[in-house]
Amino acid sequence: MQRLVVWPSRLPAPLEEAVAALESRSERLTRPASPDEVLAQVDSGAAVVIFPDAAVAVGAASHDDVMRLISDLGAIADVSIVAVVSDAYLGIDVADIATPATAAAVISAMRSIAVRRGSTTRANAVCVPAGMVSDSGSQRGAMSRAVEPQHVASTVAFLTDPANSYISGQVLFVDGGRHLFSSMTA
């Protein structure tokens, strides 16, 4: 079974539920507390799931800490990185400038890691409704169904699965179609 390293160790309730759903699928899931501990636990063959803008929101790290961690993770061979970020960067939330900026930077970093020639490390992003990261507001998209934490977990599991190793540099919106109203997604 694949080893899953999940960071940070404390998350807003909806994302904590998503991690719990991941935990029920994987017996080898760890929750290191700091970026240094993440790096100590990630080596070839591992999958690492990070929640960067949530980490900033809960005070686990600064924006700069997050970007340094991603940069270091990208340099490790044969790792599958999945970053789960808020969709606020599409321009949905005008009240908060900092969180969308981190999300956009993280997506850019994922693409840079994915496009390194000859690298075996994959990097993908999962974009969730902003309300899941701030634990507030609607978690519904255009669909009637609400976005549930298990949808986040099943998408992360799909992207980390070695069987899907030809997917890299992808941004997947787990959002009931909310992204469709933005030009940043086409």
Binding site: R111, A114, V115, M143, H151, S154, G169, Q170, G177, H179
Partner: peptide, 19 residues
């Protein structure tokens, strides 16, 4: 597993869609 994923393009291209 993709119950709320709609309207998306999922690339299966080894990163070629990025660049």
């Amino acid at each position: 597993a993709a119950g709320v994923i709609t309207g998306q393009v999922l690339y299966v291209c080894g990163g070629k869609s990025v660049y």
